[in-house]
């Protein structure tokens, strides 16, 4: 079980990122819990400067724009 956090203020790119992650994880048969972090204070604590950002098990793995599918596949 991987805990994934998508950091972003709720913009279209953030939603697309969350969907992409859920989809790739499902394709790979990895069980994930995707949580959207939308509060600015919480986003800032991760020291991420461009949204959407992605945090997996507490580590920032991506920031700025929708990640490429190949990149997401590399996480699972």
């Amino acid at each position: 079980m991987k805990a994934v956090k998508v950091l972003g203020s709720g913009c279209a790119n953030c939603k697309a990122t969350a969907r992409l992650i859920e989809q790739v994880a499902a394709d790979r048969g990895v069980s994930v819990v995707v949580e959207k972090v939308e509060k600015m204070e919480d986003i800032a604590r991760f020291n991420v400067m461009a949204t959407p950002g992605v945090v997996i098990d507490g580590v920032v793995v991506h920031s700025g724009g929708i990640p490429a599918r190949s990149k997401v596949e590399g996480w699972f």
């Binding site: 203020s9 020291n47 400067m49 700025g64």
Partner: peptide, 17 residues
């Protein structure tokens, strides 16, 4: 620098910090 107004706040905080 790539910039999107939806990232203005995290970027602002990142700079100030």
């Amino acid at each position: 620098t790539p910039f999107c107004s939806c990232s203005a706040v995290p970027l602002f905080i990142g700079f100030v910090r």
